[in-house]
């Protein structure tokens, strides 16, 4: 799910936040991967990035690694995404 700033999408409360701004693909994903390993199933990681590739890579990464993609939102020049850890 990709949502714009004013869509009313209610971001989940994250258990941890990953700052991946100014990193290029796939580093934001690699950072999310490292963060999610420390979480329990269903806990949420929020990632903030400036690489717009995150919008497509985050759902793809969730799909191949069994995590739940909750959404991304554009916030100005940043992209913010949420993922819940799979089993």
């Amino acid at each position: 799910m990709s949502v714009s700033e004013d869509s009313g999408f209610d971001p989940p409360t994250p258990a941890c936040v990953v700052d991946a701004r100014r990193l290029l693909c796939p580093m934001p994903i690699i950072k999310v991967d490292a963060a999610i390993r420390n979480l329990e199933p269903d806990q949420v990681v929020e990632v903030r990035a400036t690489d717009p590739g995150l919008e497509h890579d985050l759902p793809a990464w969730c799909r191949v690694n069994g995590h739940r993609f909750l959404g991304v939102r554009r916030a100005g020049r940043e992209v913010v995404g949420w993922v819940a850890r799979g089993e």
């Binding site: 994903i29 690699i30 890579d57 793809a60 990464w61 191949v64």
Partner: peptide, 21 residues
């Protein structure tokens, strides 16, 4: 749109992909 080729290939193949820095 920009995308990570290996991730998308893995998605199409339906396999796990380990991204390692």
């Amino acid at each position: 749109p920009p995308r990570h080729d290996a991730l998308h290939a893995a998605g199409n193949l339906g396999i796990r992909l380990h991204l390692v820095d």
